[in-house]
Design a protein around this nucleic acid. Structure first.
Lengths: 358, 358
DNA sequence: TCCAATAATAAAAACGTTTTTATTTCGGTT
DNA sequence: AACCGAAATAAAAACGTTTTTATTATTGGA
């Protein structure tokens, strides 16, 4: 009974609604909205006014179908399903937060793909690129020889990685200067009089784990010492790993007198193990940690850290991806952050570090 | 020069490609793929074989445009931009992990929308629903009177909340039995001989903060005691808040002898403050904490917790949303989890709790 | 005064689906 | 033998855009 128009006006307005209201054709409407120079200023204004009036919002699916774009920015996120590893990957909240902020003003939506293993991550990356599930991709946990980086670089699919692989490929990335940081931490401990220093590290297949070993080794070499390679532990970055590896290391004939920890999750496990062994941090043992979620200040005692606000990295990841999708050159979109050393009491060995050199 | 077919075969195959290969019309192809009963078993098989052969994958954008669905499940995620609050919201990694797992086999993609304030969250929820940016929505941090719940319930947009509001509305939700948990923790401490018990709680506008106060108060009432309302602190759930509020409480004329902490982030701050004041946890002061990321076991000393694997809640959120989007009744999609008390040494007050009753 | 060139807009096609409507085929009735 | 109904499939329309092509109106020049 009621004419169609009435019913239609209930639904969200389309470009056709605008056409009916303004009297222009849908093509003209589209051009006006996209800012094409072929429409008169006067027409554009009329159309924009009508669009505002009716609360017109372009239908993302229509655009997506026609243009082939998805207006999605995808992130690969590690799933932490195992019980006891709940703290694993907590930094992802920060990363996603940063990316989300970067994408905020843009036309892009943030979509998250969970993966269970590296192979899983590769398969998903391939699927995203092949099926064009998104217009760009962000991921972390880069291996020294990372299949995702290789594959996506070759196919030209836009992506930004948090971390660098060890192949001479050109691609957009954000990273922390892990070699520098490990060197700084180790050198500081060596200066404090330590020579049995442990490195609680990630698994060696990760590129950043190798970087850290490099920095660790360099600090010893520069001091004229042989690096204690037996004190390098590699594993998942869980609290449990931090605890277990510390217990194992302290059971050695020549246990470490200081530890460099690769993130705060493991650091908590390290502190827990040291406490259980009756070792006082800052007196019996020194600890320096990588700081990813800025919580080390609250450990007892507070731990000296290399701090890098990870959310800032996340924001940069998002910014880079936007620029990449806008056509910028990947070679220009790289940044390596150098973390900041925040000295707290726990690596001071009872004030020894402050003691003037003899 | 080369015929069009060759070029087309490079791109991902569409329903038209299948039509050309099998000789059927695109309508029949579509019906066969969707499992419509009108096509012969024989044709279906032929079509399915061809689809497999060519690696056909339905184009999500085409489907989306035609059906009006988006095949997106959206999650509202709080952004934690302030420096010093990096640990805020770390549990979101777990939540997203759980949701992602639930969505894994489905046709739905997980998309994340960050928000900066409650009003922001409301605005985004409204936009998602109005513009149909997704087919369903998940969010947490429910207020006692939550505009999102009210708005979405009224509009009929599918959503699942982590937490319940205090209005008599029917909607899908997952929650923790916070009243029970606060009661359990408080009663345990009262049984241990405490009567000056503090509750380090979230802001009172959150529904779950009120639930916890209810349980806290009930435990005192049941013991014939007046609840110490002056010892209820409310704030953001940061580590800093845990520390600051503990320092403030311990400065009172009659400071608390025990604390119930509302999550692990604040707990770390509480422990940090107690350590700074020279108070030994488990001897001078007792602590029971809500356990959200299962890290309390590594605190020094380990803290007794009410443990609920939050990833399980996340998975249930995803499952409920899928069923809701499939047309299930929201009234049936509710679940309240009761956390598990994991007794550790730190709420024992030097063994007092284990002492047989006189 | 007329033509060509230009500007502005309209019309049509296309993206890849699903769904509705139309057509064909075939076995069974009358 | 003509017809009917059902079954299977084909054809067409539609979702909301963008882009290409076509049309109309306007201007300037000879």
């Amino acid at each position: 009974m009621a004419e169609g128009k009435t019913a239609a006006s209930q639904l969200s307005p389309t470009i056709k609604t605008l056409a009916a209201h303004t009297g222009f054709s849908i093509g003209t409407i589209s051009k006006a909205l996209r800012g094409s120079p072929v429409v008169t200023e006067q027409t554009r204004e009329a159309i924009l006014a009508a669009a505002k009036d009716l609360g017109y919002q372009a239908n993302a699916r229509g655009m997506a179908l026609r243009t082939g774009k998805t207006y999605q920015a995808a992130v690969l996120m590690p799933l932490t399903s195992a019980a006891g590893y709940e703290w694993d990957g907590v930094e992802y909240t920060q990363i996603l937060s940063g990316i989300s902020q970067a994408l905020d003003g843009s036309d892009y939506q943030l979509s998250v793909h969970g993966y269970r293993s590296f192979d899983d991550a590769c398969a998903i990356a391939r699927r995203v690129a092949d099926q064009k599930l998104s217009d760009g991709l962000i991921f972390s946990g880069v291996l020294a020889d990372d299949a995702r980086v290789a594959m996506l670089t070759e196919s030209g699919f836009p992506f930004v990685s948090l971390g660098r692989c060890r192949k001479p490929l050109v691609y957009a990335h954000v990273d922390v200067d892990n070699e520098w940081a490990a060197h700084a931490a180790t050198a500081r401990l060596i200066a404090g009089g330590h020579c049995r220093i442990a490195l609680i590290n990630a698994d060696r297949r990760f590129s950043y784990a190798l970087d850290r070993i490099d920095g660790f080794v360099r600090a010893f070499r520069e001091a004229g010492l042989e690096p204690p390679l037996d004190l390098i532990a590699g594993g998942d970055l869980s609290t449990r790993f931090g605890r277990d590896s510390t217990l194992a290391l302290q059971g050695l004939p020549q246990p470490p007198t200081a530890l460099v920890c690769v993130n705060e999750s493991t650091t908590l496990g390290v502190l827990s193990a040291l406490g259980a062994l009756g070792l006082r941090v800052g007196e019996d043992v020194d600890v320096i940690a990588y700081d990813d979620i800025n919580v080390s200040a609250y450990f007892s005692p507070p731990v000296t850290t290399l701090y890098q606000p990870i959310e800032v990295l996340g924001r940069r990841l998002g910014e880079f991806l936007l620029r990449l999708m806008a056509g910028d050159d990947a070679a220009q979109l790289t940044e390596v952050f150098r973390p900041q050393l925040i000295a707290r009491q726990a690596d001071n060995l009872g004030g020894r570090l402050d003691r003037p050199d003899p």
